[in-house]
Amino acid sequence: MSTNGEMNQGSGPLVGSIIVVLVLLLGGYYSVRVVENLNPLATDLNLPVEESTSSQSAQIANIATTTRDKSMDIEDIEKDAMEIDVNVLDSNLENLDLLIDQ
């Protein structure tokens, strides 16, 4: 026949064990997720434009094709050439520096 003291003694390790098992389960789930992300073979770095953030999409939209693009007229070609801004390449690098410095 067990006393109250014996019952309480038994619940402590049980609760602790449950916590440890839960932590291990969470850890296992998380590491599986991280390993998927870390695997270079599973990582496609040339993501389609749709996956960029809204500001990045806006930058790309600035250099996207317009209706004038197919014109062979030299004036139209000149206008399109003037619209090209190579400095858009720098904007993401600045964000990158901020993230790396964190």
Partner: peptide, 24 residues
Amino acid sequence: GQRRDEIKKQLDATIAISDELIDK
């Protein structure tokens, strides 16, 4: 993990923009 995802987004976007500029 979150920071790595954010860095990856910026790297991908830079490559995508470069590609677009060259195409243009």
